[in-house]
Design a protein around this nucleic acid. Structure first.
Lengths: 221, 221
DNA sequence: TGTCAATATCTTGCATACATGAAAACTCAT
DNA sequence: ATGAGTTTTCATGTATGCAAGATATTGACA
């Protein structure tokens, strides 16, 4: 756990969250107030406040008198989270198909083309464009509350999405699913858009499951 | 703002949340740390921690150096929240229809019968049984993460649900919608269960909209 | 040598004091 | 009387001290 530079700008809560989703703090790591306070160059009070917020967001768990630790996410728990993500994206798609205005339409098409190019550039480029694609759909739902909820969960699932994008042919398949989504949105078919997004997201949970199973096999063999 | 008895048990965060959703603190009310600390018989530190958590949950807004205030929920914002609620309940229904085990099935049927009886007893009894009905569906989804998210939002929408239950014939209509939901769940029709729950929940947003329009008309007339 | 218990250390939970910035009140000039 | 500038007040943001509980360590005994 290297020292992290102290400064102003993003809130302490955001900075610790970033350290968690980026993997700097691993699941199960204990987060001691004094240690964090030293690392970020502040006192315990703001650290405590940040930890309470992260607890509310579900990223860490605080047990009375026993301190905070990064939430351990089991594969089962992860599948549950991807189901909710799929549900939220599904609603976003349902609403977006009905409410798509010219601006959002252009934005989604533009990002979709960027995705097409990124497919050839490999994992990192596609990862970035894929993120923009999903954010654009949230926005197109014309429901800021939904957008906020979706973004929060999306962010929390970030590390796991990155892993599954590396699996075989996943990028090509992902892009094909995007095409189905775009088609549904443009034609205003809300039912199809919802289903396409649900499938697109929950398949990631399946892929992650496969990934873990593969890990276990190679560890044992 | 009457003094609230201090004791141990539910966390301060939960107690303040209860005071907000029950209407003890109204939207727009400023929440001063020292005042709350006195009311609950603690110091500012735990109050601050609770406020940070409630901010994360969206119930209050904290602006730097300007303190905390109960979030003001506009009708538009409320509709957005009901849409997300409808989406979450829809997913719960979709999953529940597929995964319904004997225990959940019996529980839902039992509560549904209690609802049938409560229809005649009026608003308060039905309000209570209705809540149990929805919780049972969350549980039947066999997705604890979804259950948690749904419960949190359900709780936040509590006050507005109560209002709309008072509108004309709403209870009878609500119960008819429940029957459609139960039927879909029992027949394992996940698509229909999802749609039924979406309709059931989002119609509440419409009713609330009508309610507000009526208020404005009578205020002007 | 292994297990259990007593003690020591360490970390959290809460309270309080001080610093800082914003809103309100007040003064003065026009 | 009104508006701008200044001052004052007050709430928030942060740091630190103290108490209580949990974990780790050490030692005794079987």
């Amino acid at each position: 756990m290297a020292k992290i530079a102290a400064n102003s700008g993003p809130s302490l809560r955001d900075r610790i969250e970033e350290a968690i989703v980026s993997g700097h703090f691993q699941p199960g790591d204990r987060l001691e107030e004094v240690t964090l306070a030293e690392q970020y160059g502040v006192s315990r009070t703001p650290v405590r406040e940040a930890l309470r917020q992260l607890q509310e967001a579900g990223l860490i768990e605080i047990r009375p008198r026993r301190g905070a630790a990064v939430s351990v996410v089991t594969p089962t728990h992860l599948i549950h989270m991807f189901e909710v993500m799929g549900g939220l994206e599904g609603i976003a798609g349902r609403l977006a198909a009905r409410r798509l205005d010219e601006k959002s339409k252009q934005e989604i098409l533009e990002i979709h083309e960027a995705c097409r190019i990124a497919v050839k550039d490999g994992s990192d480029a596609y990862y970035y464009e894929n993120e923009r694609f999903h954010m654009a759909i949230y926005r197109a739902s014309a429901n800021p509350f939904l957008e906020e909820q979706a973004r929060a969960l999306h962010r929390r699932l970030k590390p796991y999405r990155r892993i599954q994008l590396r699996s075989l042919n996943r990028i090509e398949h992902s892009f094909a699913e995007h095409e189905r989504i775009v088609k549904a949105l443009l034609s205003g078919d809300s039912q199809e858009a919802e289903q396409a997004l649900w499938d697109h997201v929950t398949i990631q949970a399946d892929r992650f499951h496969d990934f873990l199973a593969g890990l276990e096999r190679s560890a044992k063999g």
